[in-house]
Nucleic acid binder design. Structure first.
Lengths: 339, 339
DNA sequence: ACACTGTTTGTAATCGATTACATTGAAATG
DNA sequence: CATTTCAATGTAATCGATTACAAACAGTGT
């Protein structure tokens, strides 16, 4: 491995000058710069990054903590982060937390040891206070999260209003017995989506039946199971708002297995607009989160923190969108009206 | 930040001893070890990893280069890699190549600069010779790849025999006009899957119609489009083997849109067994790759390289499995026979 | 008591880039 | 021409852990 002193020797300058050519070219005359550049070329020199990182105690690496990379929602967000990071010369270290709090802790230790310059946590489980403490000393950004009163930058969509929008869409289609399958209720996101549902119902003067609320786990299987429960009830729902597309798909399959037609007998709206929602039969009506964009935005905010720029607002709400496909019956209705 | 010399001072020993307690505890007497450990505890000392990495020129980090993390197949493999890596105290740096060769090059530069201890490439695009060169100097493992004659460890399934198995399944169900939608044919994997198809046809005495071979891009959209083409032909196929589940789904949707029933009018077999295949309507018959396991295996092999253990075989073929669901019509047939 | 062996600990060099501070030299000014 | 100023470059310390080598020490056998 050629090192800086080799370059310096060949170019007939000191290592300080070589270093300057590399990092502050404007402080060096054109002629010496050329000499050094030629020597670098000649020797095929590559700076030892480990030495640089050590000396500057900076790694140009960020840590992304994901509950589970296998989940397509997180994978897309990570895609956005990686894209934006590599634009800025940063590298992305990936860590699956598997929703375990101690793994999240471990990741924070990692940052405390300065092994990374900052971190982005997706759907953190850690207490708000703990996160707050860390954020005072280290650059951290959260995504798909919501904290009540805090200075930590958060990138998210408005889960309450979007869920409200989804539920209202079903109400507008004439439904009153609207079921809701939530995600794990120990997660903020699930509670916010549930809240949006309640608000929509209330504002439209509908007393919702608590029997129609079921807690799932954001998976197909849980959606399937909970829908089976709902269909077993004396007065089954005529519509469903599921807190994730996966659960919506599971629920629809449960309905199909019972001969219940979607959307004719059961209108369904999901959440996330995952890649497969448009291909599913029937294509899902759902709330689209700008997943890739959220990743990019999170990384942007982290870059601001790195550069010492102020991050004006702490909460960055990106726009969501209700995507109407077939599972809610709106298109079917339109067609019927037209004919 | 407390450093090693602080600990040494408090414990009344030299830094060398502190370092030994941390890395070679067996060379230190029990009593001094205790003193040092107490001092570490007292000061809440954490070794500076950047200094350690620099000094040892080792990073405990590996690089994983993925064509696209958004693709669920790769996401699952990365999940397996991450799992196994963190068991071994290694960290995973993620890089999306977006199938661009120059990005793959860049990642190799990264390793040459010793910023990572080794790398795993998924579905590399780079030339075999280049990879071979690199492998002689740096620890590298490939996954979902196949190289003809090389010393680079590769983790994969047998794409030829599995595709043959998939095609034979369709033949056994009585089909002769079996179409095949390939992936991009500049990718080895696509060519191997195509080869498996040809072998199955040939061995069963069927001259396949080149009109029934269409090149897709591993996406829904391409599957949809190519199926439309197939359906437009004078003698459309009665069965389809698609080189990926995504394309199979696209194709099935194309068929549905034309009123062609799957599996009654068109039997379909896919490839990959992605998470959504079982939920699709109809559930896909497909070849299951042990995705998570492939990731784990790849990391295991890399660990062997790190430890200087010999990697006996270069090609590690993991078992695949034909998962029979509804899209191929086998179940339907059984049912008909029984009744 | 002495030499010898082996274990434990300490001293100080080392990894390679960065940078505070010192030096050189050339241009500018009176 | 002497002096000041400033830009360009060099010298050497520095970051913190690791480790080759040296030293100290305890135990063993004669």
């Amino acid at each position: 491995m050629t090192k800086m002193s080799d370059v310096a020797a060949l170019a007939g300058v000191s290592t300080a000058t070589v270093s300057r050519v590399l990092r502050n070219p404007e402080t060096v005359t054109e002629t010496t710069k050329q000499k050094v550049l030629e020597a670098i070329e000649e020797l095929n020199y590559q700076p030892n990054m480990l030495a640089r990182h050590f000396r500057r105690s900076q790694t140009n690496t960020i840590l992304v903590v994901v509950p589970n990379i296998i989940n397509t929602v997180f994978a897309e967000i990570v895609g956005g982060i990686e894209e934006e990071a590599s634009k800025n010369g940063y590298r992305v270290l990936l860590r699956n937390s598997n929703n375990q709090i101690d793994r999240e802790y471990g990741s924070i230790e990692h940052m405390k040891q300065r092994q990374v310059d900052g971190m982005i946590m997706l759907s953190p489980r850690l207490d708000e206070e703990i996160l707050q403490d860390i954020s005072e000393k280290y650059p951290i950004v959260l995504a798909t999260a919501h904290l009540d009163e805090t200075k930590i930058p958060v990138v998210s969509i408005d889960n309450v209003s979007s869920s409200k929008k989804a539920t209202e869409h079903l109400i507008r289609l004439g439904h009153r017995r609207i079921a809701h399958i939530t995600g794990q209720l120990d997660s903020m996101i699930s509670r916010y989506r549930f809240k949006g549902y309640r608000e929509a119902m209330k504002e439209n003067g509908i007393d919702y039946d608590t029997q129609l609320i079921r807690e799932g786990e954001f998976t197909f299987e849980s959606g399937y199971e909970q829908m089976m429960n709902l269909l077993d009830q004396k007065f089954p729902p005529t519509a469903l708002f599921a807190a994730s597309d996966e659960m919506a798909m599971g629920a629809i399959n449960a309905a199909k297995s019972r001969g219940v037609n979607v959307p004719e007998d059961l209108a369904v709206v999901g959440f996330d607009n995952i890649r497969f929602s448009s291909v599913f039969d029937p294509p899902l009506t759902t709330i689209a989160q700008p997943k890739f964009g959220m990743g990019e935005k999170a990384m942007e905010l982290l870059m601001k923190k790195f550069n010492g720029e102020p991050v004006e607002q702490t909460e960055h709400i990106l726009p969501d969108e209700l995507i109407i496909r077939d599972s809610c019956g709106a298109r079917l209705k339109e067609k019927l009206i037209r004919t």
